[in-house]
Design a binder for these strands. Structure first.
Lengths: 231, 231
DNA sequence: TAGCTCAGTTGGTTAGAGCAGCTGACTCTT
DNA sequence: AAGAGTCAGCTGCTCTAACCAACTGAGCTA
């Protein structure tokens, strides 16, 4: 046992195991019994280390089946971000607004770079999504999935999986918070129009217009989040 | 015990405890014994839940002292991001490059918005940092802290703590990876010149120039990361 | 008063036992 | 022979009980 913290130590050793053996996501890991023999520690310590790794998405545990290398997505980050925001919200901070501004800051910067560079195939996909959105708007409210898909498709062609994942993580966090924390009223038709505006701007290749279209979209949500703006 | 996973259940209950009682960071939590009595579960289960929460930065455990509400920083995200990138790197992916591009994409978008809007006090601080950087460059290599401080100061006045934290988290992750994974050779003088360029552009208020200055800075690092570019 | 010591509290680790979910091979029925 | 049901065996999950290790603070000593 080294420095301070046996459980910490075991976590590092398991991580090292994954890295050294180049294990891909989904690869099976040693059983708890094997790990405790391998490291010379008790079952309990092994389990505590695994739980911590599971919380970080590094490991996936399936009851009665085995332990595997985790998907290593941004899911844990979402959880952390959500909790942090919820806690801040109930303590009177404007944490939800901060999260929205974070998304706004990042997405406005990115969309400017995308303007005019999206291939026709993807534009058609976005077109279809806006159409679906308008359909749903007429029927009542825009489905969350549709909005998510629009944003995902928009930034997909940046060709950086990590970047896309981070953006989707922010979207997911904000979405879950918006529904759990405060039910922000939305006008479906306005939402549709704004998405159509973003698409049109991106298609036209006008970076400035694209940026302001996205900003307008976020501004719409932001206004409804600000205190004293809920009728 | 509800759905699936007792430990998961306890995690949620502890989270609820923190949220419902509006506990701020650093506030003391019940002891392990109290928690096991409170929830009617064994100490083991409590500990596993706490370990998971600790991994997410929601809880802080101090041996022989007690358990406290964690700092809720982005530190766990950094850990996850680092591991993910390391694992990908050793499996032949360009995960490190993706992380750099993520920083580049976000920072170029933000700096454009900052140009000409930074108060003189902050500009002086940045000036001092560049001066220190040049001092260090003359003496050998630029200290990591100085570079970190420059980027942190640059984006501080965006006035969104969450955004600043995320940016610093990305910086930290990349820095640790650059030193641990591949030792990227750097010309200290070029680095200094590029930072000075960014500062000058931001001061001038020219958004386009600021953006390209940041892009050039990242481009410098990116080139040295690409395969076959290490002499 | 300054410093030390020690008892009490809290988390850390171990051990062993039994419970619970899943898989796959075996058996029984059709 | 083909299908469905059963059960043995793995796996992870939870509990209990005991002891180890780190820290605090009250009380003792010099």
């Amino acid at each position: 046992m080294h420095g301070r913290g046996m459980a910490r130590d075991i976590q590092e050793r398991i991580k090292k195991l994954i890295v050294d053996q180049r294990l891909p996501s989904g690869a099976p890991l040693p059983t708890e019994t094997e790990l405790m023999e391998l490291f010379g520690v008790s079952r309990n310590s092994v389990r505590e280390a695994l739980k911590a790794l599971q919380a970080m998405g590094i490991v996936e545990i399936r009851h009665g089946f085995g332990t595997y290398v985790g998907p290593m997505t941004m899911a844990p980050m979402i959880e952390g971000l959500i909790f942090r925001t919820v806690a801040g919200h109930y303590r009177g901070e404007d944490s939800l607004l901060q999260l929205l501004e974070l998304r706004e800051a990042v997405e406005t910067g990115l969309v400017a770079r995308l303007a005019g560079r999206i291939p026709e195939a993807d534009l058609a996909e976005l077109e279809a999504l806006v159409a679906r959105m308008e359909e749903e708007a007429a029927a009542g409210a825009v489905g969350a999935d549709t909005d998510r898909a629009f944003h995902a498709s928009l930034y997909r062609h940046l060709d950086n999986p990590l970047l896309s994942e981070v953006l989707e993580a922010f979207w997911d966090a904000f979405h879950r918070l918006r529904t759990d924390l405060v039910d922000v009223p939305q006008d479906p038709k306005v939402t549709c129009a704004q998405h159509r505006g973003i698409l049109a701007a991106v298609r036209s290749g006008d970076a400035v217009r694209a940026e302001s279209a996205v900003r307008e979209h976020f501004g719409n949500i932001r206004d409804r989040l600000r205190p004293g703006h809920r009728p």
